[in-house]
Write a protein that binds this DNA or RNA. Structure first.
Lengths: 131, 131
DNA sequence: ATACTTGTACTAGTATCGTAGTACAATCCG
DNA sequence: CGGATTGTACTACGATACTAGTACAAGTAT
Protein backbone atom coordinates (compact mmCIF):
# COMPACT_ATOMS: atom_id res chain seq x y z
CA UNK A 1 0.00 0.00 0.00
CA UNK A 2 2.72 2.41 0.95
CA UNK A 3 6.12 2.94 -0.60
CA UNK A 4 4.73 2.99 -4.07
CA UNK A 5 6.60 6.04 -5.17
CA UNK A 6 9.17 8.18 -3.47
CA UNK A 7 9.84 11.89 -3.85
CA UNK A 8 12.72 14.10 -2.82
CA UNK A 9 11.51 17.55 -1.77
CA UNK A 10 15.10 18.76 -1.79
CA UNK A 11 15.66 17.74 -5.39
CA UNK A 12 15.52 20.66 -7.84
CA UNK A 13 12.96 18.84 -9.93
CA UNK A 14 9.51 19.91 -8.75
CA UNK A 15 7.38 17.39 -6.90
CA UNK A 16 4.71 17.18 -9.56
CA UNK A 17 7.34 16.39 -12.19
CA UNK A 18 8.93 13.71 -10.05
CA UNK A 19 5.58 12.09 -9.49
CA UNK A 20 4.62 12.31 -13.13
CA UNK A 21 7.83 10.63 -14.14
CA UNK A 22 7.48 7.98 -11.47
CA UNK A 23 4.00 7.04 -12.58
CA UNK A 24 4.89 7.00 -16.25
CA UNK A 25 7.86 4.85 -15.49
CA UNK A 26 5.85 2.45 -13.34
CA UNK A 27 3.41 1.98 -16.19
CA UNK A 28 6.08 1.70 -18.83
CA UNK A 29 7.88 -0.98 -16.86
CA UNK A 30 4.72 -2.87 -16.03
CA UNK A 31 4.79 -2.26 -12.31
CA UNK A 32 1.39 -0.70 -12.83
CA UNK A 33 -0.78 -2.67 -15.20
CA UNK A 34 -3.71 -1.63 -17.34
CA UNK A 35 -6.89 -1.33 -15.31
CA UNK A 36 -5.09 -1.20 -12.03
CA UNK A 37 -6.24 1.43 -9.56
CA UNK A 38 -3.88 4.07 -8.30
CA UNK A 39 -4.04 5.36 -4.73
CA UNK A 40 -6.62 8.05 -4.18
CA UNK A 41 -5.53 11.63 -4.48
CA UNK A 42 -5.71 12.19 -0.73
CA UNK A 43 -4.15 8.88 0.21
CA UNK A 44 -1.14 9.37 -2.02
CA UNK A 45 -0.89 12.94 -0.80
CA UNK A 46 -0.45 11.89 2.82
CA UNK A 47 1.88 9.05 1.85
CA UNK A 48 4.14 11.42 -0.02
CA UNK A 49 3.60 14.24 2.47
CA UNK A 50 2.40 16.48 -0.28
CA UNK A 51 -0.70 18.53 -0.92
CA UNK A 52 -3.63 16.69 -2.44
CA UNK A 53 -3.78 19.24 -5.21
CA UNK A 54 -0.32 18.37 -6.36
CA UNK A 55 -1.31 14.77 -6.82
CA UNK A 56 -4.56 15.79 -8.46
CA UNK A 57 -2.73 17.96 -10.98
CA UNK A 58 -0.49 15.05 -11.90
CA UNK A 59 -3.41 12.68 -12.31
CA UNK A 60 -5.22 15.25 -14.44
CA UNK A 61 -2.23 15.82 -16.64
CA UNK A 62 -1.71 12.11 -17.13
CA UNK A 63 -5.36 11.77 -17.99
CA UNK A 64 -5.00 14.43 -20.66
CA UNK A 65 -2.05 12.42 -21.93
CA UNK A 66 -4.36 9.45 -22.15
CA UNK A 67 -2.52 7.07 -19.89
CA UNK A 68 -4.86 7.41 -16.90
CA UNK A 69 -8.60 7.43 -16.49
CA UNK A 70 -10.41 8.88 -13.53
CA UNK A 71 -13.96 8.42 -12.34
CA UNK A 72 -15.30 10.64 -9.62
CA UNK A 73 -16.25 8.86 -6.47
CA UNK A 74 -14.43 5.78 -7.65
CA UNK A 75 -10.80 6.43 -8.30
CA UNK A 76 -8.07 6.71 -10.88
CA UNK A 77 -6.99 3.82 -13.07
CA UNK A 78 -4.40 2.97 -15.66
CA UNK A 79 -6.04 3.42 -19.02
CA UNK A 80 -5.83 1.03 -21.92
CA UNK A 81 -5.72 3.90 -24.39
CA UNK A 82 -1.97 4.07 -24.35
CA UNK A 83 -1.91 0.80 -26.22
CA UNK A 84 -4.22 1.91 -29.03
CA UNK A 85 -2.80 2.82 -32.45
CA UNK A 86 -3.79 6.49 -32.22
CA UNK A 87 -1.99 6.84 -28.94
CA UNK A 88 0.99 5.04 -30.31
CA UNK A 89 1.07 7.66 -33.02
CA UNK A 90 0.98 10.51 -30.53
CA UNK A 91 3.64 8.76 -28.58
CA UNK A 92 5.84 8.60 -31.64
CA UNK A 93 5.32 12.29 -32.16
CA UNK A 94 6.40 12.97 -28.60
CA UNK A 95 9.50 10.95 -29.21
CA UNK A 96 10.24 13.09 -32.24
CA UNK A 97 9.78 16.24 -30.17
CA UNK A 98 12.04 15.04 -27.42
CA UNK A 99 14.70 14.04 -29.88
CA UNK A 100 14.35 17.41 -31.59
CA UNK A 101 15.00 19.32 -28.41
CA UNK A 102 17.82 16.99 -27.61
CA UNK A 103 19.55 17.39 -30.94
CA UNK A 104 19.12 21.13 -30.84
CA UNK A 105 20.62 21.38 -27.40
CA UNK A 106 23.51 19.13 -28.27
CA UNK A 107 24.26 21.03 -31.46
CA UNK A 108 24.27 24.27 -29.52
CA UNK A 109 26.99 22.69 -27.43
CA UNK A 110 28.93 21.83 -30.51
CA UNK A 111 28.16 18.14 -30.68
CA UNK A 112 27.19 16.43 -33.86
CA UNK A 113 24.43 13.91 -34.24
CA UNK A 114 27.10 11.28 -34.66
CA UNK A 115 28.53 12.11 -31.25
CA UNK A 116 25.11 11.48 -29.77
CA UNK A 117 24.78 8.23 -31.63
CA UNK A 118 28.14 7.04 -30.35
CA UNK A 119 27.23 7.83 -26.78
CA UNK A 120 23.88 6.13 -27.08
CA UNK A 121 25.42 3.08 -28.68
CA UNK A 122 27.84 2.56 -25.84
CA UNK A 123 24.96 2.99 -23.43
CA UNK A 124 22.83 0.49 -25.24
CA UNK A 125 25.23 -2.27 -24.34
CA UNK A 126 25.31 -1.51 -20.64
CA UNK A 127 21.75 -0.74 -19.65
CA UNK A 128 19.26 -3.19 -20.94
CA UNK A 129 15.87 -1.67 -20.39
CA UNK A 130 13.27 -4.33 -19.71
CA UNK A 131 9.89 -3.37 -21.01
CA UNK B 1 28.84 44.62 -36.66
CA UNK B 2 25.15 44.34 -35.99
CA UNK B 3 22.87 41.39 -36.61
CA UNK B 4 25.33 39.03 -35.03
CA UNK B 5 22.81 37.29 -32.87
CA UNK B 6 19.08 37.57 -32.55
CA UNK B 7 16.87 37.05 -29.53
CA UNK B 8 13.14 36.63 -29.09
CA UNK B 9 11.94 38.24 -25.87
CA UNK B 10 8.58 36.54 -26.32
CA UNK B 11 10.12 33.08 -26.49
CA UNK B 12 9.77 31.12 -23.25
CA UNK B 13 13.51 30.49 -23.19
CA UNK B 14 15.12 33.25 -21.12
CA UNK B 15 17.26 35.80 -22.91
CA UNK B 16 20.47 34.78 -21.25
CA UNK B 17 19.93 31.18 -22.31
CA UNK B 18 19.19 32.18 -25.88
CA UNK B 19 22.33 34.24 -26.04
CA UNK B 20 24.45 31.55 -24.44
CA UNK B 21 23.24 29.04 -26.96
CA UNK B 22 23.74 31.43 -29.85
CA UNK B 23 27.33 32.15 -28.89
CA UNK B 24 28.16 28.51 -28.29
CA UNK B 25 26.65 27.65 -31.61
CA UNK B 26 28.52 30.40 -33.44
CA UNK B 27 31.78 29.11 -32.04
CA UNK B 28 30.96 25.49 -32.68
CA UNK B 29 30.13 26.22 -36.30
CA UNK B 30 33.14 28.43 -36.82
CA UNK B 31 31.25 31.66 -37.34
CA UNK B 32 33.29 32.93 -34.40
CA UNK B 33 36.91 31.86 -34.55
CA UNK B 34 39.50 31.47 -31.83
CA UNK B 35 40.96 34.79 -30.80
CA UNK B 36 38.16 36.79 -32.33
CA UNK B 37 36.73 39.60 -30.25
CA UNK B 38 33.10 39.64 -29.31
CA UNK B 39 31.10 42.85 -29.09
CA UNK B 40 31.51 44.71 -25.82
CA UNK B 41 29.00 44.06 -23.11
CA UNK B 42 27.35 47.43 -23.58
CA UNK B 43 27.41 47.35 -27.36
CA UNK B 44 25.79 43.96 -27.59
CA UNK B 45 23.31 45.03 -24.94
CA UNK B 46 22.02 47.92 -27.03
CA UNK B 47 22.06 45.83 -30.20
CA UNK B 48 19.92 43.18 -28.60
CA UNK B 49 17.89 45.73 -26.61
CA UNK B 50 18.80 43.99 -23.42
CA UNK B 51 20.38 45.04 -20.17
CA UNK B 52 24.15 45.08 -20.11
CA UNK B 53 24.12 42.85 -17.08
CA UNK B 54 22.39 40.10 -18.97
CA UNK B 55 25.16 40.06 -21.54
CA UNK B 56 27.80 40.27 -18.84
CA UNK B 57 26.35 37.25 -17.06
CA UNK B 58 26.48 35.25 -20.25
CA UNK B 59 30.07 36.23 -20.96
CA UNK B 60 31.02 35.38 -17.39
CA UNK B 61 29.35 32.00 -17.56
CA UNK B 62 31.01 31.19 -20.85
CA UNK B 63 34.32 32.22 -19.38
CA UNK B 64 33.80 29.81 -16.49
CA UNK B 65 33.08 27.19 -19.11
CA UNK B 66 36.42 28.03 -20.67
CA UNK B 67 35.26 29.00 -24.12
CA UNK B 68 35.67 32.76 -23.64
CA UNK B 69 38.36 34.95 -22.17
CA UNK B 70 37.80 38.47 -20.95
CA UNK B 71 40.26 41.21 -20.19
CA UNK B 72 39.06 44.31 -18.45
CA UNK B 73 39.40 47.46 -20.44
CA UNK B 74 40.04 45.44 -23.56
CA UNK B 75 37.19 43.14 -24.34
CA UNK B 76 36.03 39.54 -24.55
CA UNK B 77 37.54 37.00 -26.89
CA UNK B 78 37.03 33.44 -28.02
CA UNK B 79 39.43 31.32 -26.02
CA UNK B 80 41.66 28.62 -27.41
CA UNK B 81 41.13 26.51 -24.32
CA UNK B 82 38.15 24.73 -25.78
CA UNK B 83 40.53 22.95 -28.14
CA UNK B 84 42.85 21.65 -25.45
CA UNK B 85 42.70 18.00 -24.35
CA UNK B 86 41.50 18.80 -20.85
CA UNK B 87 38.62 20.79 -22.18
CA UNK B 88 37.81 18.12 -24.66
CA UNK B 89 37.55 15.78 -21.71
CA UNK B 90 35.16 18.07 -19.87
CA UNK B 91 33.19 18.43 -23.03
CA UNK B 92 32.89 14.68 -23.33
CA UNK B 93 31.67 14.54 -19.77
CA UNK B 94 29.02 17.13 -20.56
CA UNK B 95 27.93 15.04 -23.46
CA UNK B 96 27.57 12.08 -21.15
CA UNK B 97 25.49 14.16 -18.74
CA UNK B 98 23.20 15.41 -21.47
CA UNK B 99 22.72 11.92 -22.81
CA UNK B 100 22.05 10.69 -19.31
CA UNK B 101 19.25 13.14 -18.75
CA UNK B 102 17.94 12.40 -22.19
CA UNK B 103 17.84 8.66 -21.70
CA UNK B 104 16.27 9.01 -18.28
CA UNK B 105 13.56 11.26 -19.60
CA UNK B 106 12.85 9.04 -22.55
CA UNK B 107 12.67 5.92 -20.39
CA UNK B 108 10.24 7.68 -18.08
CA UNK B 109 8.09 8.11 -21.17
CA UNK B 110 8.37 4.45 -21.91
CA UNK B 111 10.86 4.63 -24.76
CA UNK B 112 13.78 2.32 -25.00
CA UNK B 113 17.28 3.32 -25.95
CA UNK B 114 16.72 1.59 -29.26
CA UNK B 115 13.79 3.86 -30.01
CA UNK B 116 16.07 6.83 -29.50
CA UNK B 117 18.70 5.32 -31.70
CA UNK B 118 16.20 4.75 -34.48
CA UNK B 119 14.98 8.32 -34.33
CA UNK B 120 18.48 9.68 -34.33
CA UNK B 121 19.51 7.48 -37.21
CA UNK B 122 16.72 8.75 -39.41
CA UNK B 123 17.67 12.28 -38.44
CA UNK B 124 21.29 11.70 -39.24
CA UNK B 125 20.45 11.27 -42.89
CA UNK B 126 18.46 14.48 -43.21
CA UNK B 127 20.39 17.10 -41.29
CA UNK B 128 24.07 17.09 -41.97
CA UNK B 129 25.66 19.26 -39.35
CA UNK B 130 28.77 20.91 -40.67
CA UNK B 131 31.37 21.43 -38.01
C1' DA C 1 48.05 61.35 -14.30
C1' DT C 2 43.56 61.61 -16.17
C1' DA C 3 40.00 60.52 -19.08
C1' DC C 4 37.96 56.73 -21.30
C1' DT C 5 36.69 52.05 -22.13
C1' DT C 6 36.08 47.76 -20.54
C1' DG C 7 33.99 44.17 -17.37
C1' DT C 8 31.85 43.46 -12.39
C1' DA C 9 29.20 43.64 -7.95
C1' DC C 10 25.30 44.78 -5.59
C1' DT C 11 20.53 45.76 -5.31
C1' DA C 12 15.82 45.73 -6.45
C1' DG C 13 11.63 44.98 -8.89
C1' DT C 14 8.64 41.96 -11.58
C1' DA C 15 6.95 37.94 -13.27
C1' DT C 16 6.43 33.16 -13.16
C1' DC C 17 6.12 28.78 -11.02
C1' DG C 18 5.16 25.41 -7.51
C1' DT C 19 2.64 24.20 -3.64
C1' DA C 20 -0.77 24.52 -0.17
C1' DG C 21 -5.47 25.75 1.75
C1' DT C 22 -10.21 25.74 1.37
C1' DA C 23 -14.49 25.04 -0.51
C1' DC C 24 -17.15 22.67 -4.19
C1' DA C 25 -19.12 18.88 -7.31
C1' DA C 26 -19.90 14.26 -8.78
C1' DT C 27 -20.44 9.49 -7.69
C1' DC C 28 -21.13 5.51 -4.88
C1' DC C 29 -23.34 2.81 -1.20
C1' DG C 30 -26.29 1.99 2.59
C1' DC D 1 -32.49 10.23 0.50
C1' DG D 2 -28.07 11.10 3.07
C1' DG D 3 -23.54 10.27 4.41
C1' DA D 4 -19.08 9.05 2.78
C1' DT D 5 -15.58 9.00 -0.68
C1' DT D 6 -13.79 10.47 -4.78
C1' DG D 7 -11.85 14.05 -7.95
C1' DT D 8 -11.96 19.42 -9.09
C1' DA D 9 -11.94 24.71 -9.08
C1' DC D 10 -10.46 28.75 -7.14
C1' DT D 11 -7.44 31.41 -4.41
C1' DA D 12 -3.32 32.79 -2.22
C1' DC D 13 1.17 32.55 -0.42
C1' DG D 14 6.17 31.69 -0.86
C1' DA D 15 10.08 31.02 -3.42
C1' DT D 16 12.74 31.30 -7.25
C1' DA D 17 14.30 33.07 -11.65
C1' DC D 18 15.09 36.77 -14.86
C1' DT D 19 16.09 41.19 -15.98
C1' DA D 20 17.13 45.95 -15.18
C1' DG D 21 19.29 49.99 -12.69
C1' DT D 22 23.09 51.98 -10.60
C1' DA D 23 27.45 52.40 -8.84
C1' DC D 24 32.15 50.40 -8.79
C1' DA D 25 36.82 48.46 -10.23
C1' DA D 26 40.41 47.35 -13.42
C1' DG D 27 42.74 48.13 -17.35
C1' DT D 28 44.25 51.14 -21.60
C1' DA D 29 45.78 55.16 -23.96
C1' DT D 30 46.85 59.86 -24.59
Amino acid sequence: MSQIFSLSPSHPMPLYAQLTRAIRFAIATGRLRVGEQLPTVRQLAVDLRVNANTVAKVYAELERSGILETRRGVGTFVSARHLTPVHREEHEKHLKDVVDRFVEEACAMGFSVDDLLDQLQSRRNKETINV
